[in-house]
Amino acid sequence: MPDFDASEMQARFDARIGAEERIEPKDWMPDAYRRNLIRQMSQHAHSEVIGMQPEGNWISRAPTLKRKAILLAKVQDEAGHGLYLYSATETLGATRESLVDALHESRAKYASIFNYPSLTWADVGAIGWLVDGAAIVNQISLQRTSYGPYARAMVRICKEESFHMRQGYEIMLTLCRGSNDQRAMAQDALDRWWWPSLMMFGPHDAESAHSAQSMQWKLKRQSNDELRQKFVDQTVPQAEYLGIRIPDPKLRLDAATGHYAFGEIDWREFQRVVSGDGPCNRERLAHHVRAHDDGAWVREAAHAYQAKRAARDRVEAAS
């Protein structure tokens, strides 16, 4: 193991970041970079997994067999994304158990958007269209993140994610072209999911504790506000096409910039929900804890079985 000088390693690390080179698991990295990465990746993973709950709610009640199959495949993909991201986090030496514990003890967060309830079938459409739409904007940006395994997980996820948004939008389109009840259902879902979707991009960058450091290390490639603007710009025409109204009286196209200006987010609601006081925070976490606890005997059984088999194999090999 070569004798190294920490400041030399730091200089080399900084140079690699500057040169847009990827940092890989066995590479030297500052402790703070490692910690930041573990936090960011694991929270991303937790979000995918918790997100299975509001959508998973509707699998048993999907209105057609095709929609049932599609929704099941989509939620399964979310589980897969969680797995890719936990995998990537584990390359940094964090164990899966420790990450799950952090979630259960509320030391780690997950995307606050999933603390809202999915109340109608239209919510399934809105979540696919808006929440996945917002996630894609974020994830495309993260494909260029500096940590190799994270970037590769993002590439894989982005490939799979495109169908998620499309299925959501297709649901909304069908509803908006349907009966009065269906159109009202779609409008109601947009009314409830619009602002939380904008909040997904986080606070204004000046107010974000981690933003500046994450940008410096190229873990984060674009600012929260930049990404939020991108999302708004792409989504407003989509809503117009559907013929439903975005619940923001201040929304208007600024002809000079080509961007949509929009109203201020209710940051008190954002804070409330992020700090645990949203409609579903307790249920989401309790659900995850319960599933994990209920599964303990299963995991123990699999382990015990393997231990028995290994012992039998050793005995056979010896005889």
């Binding site: 299975m52 399964q76 589980a79 599933a291 599964g295």
Partner: peptide, 19 residues
């Protein structure tokens, strides 16, 4: 089987049961 979504004993098992 679909009722196991978000209730499975491990994330790997979630994917398997969903399949």
């Amino acid at each position: 089987l679909a009722e196991w979504v978000s209730n499975a004993p491990s994330l790997e098992e979630e994917l398997a049961l969903a399949n």
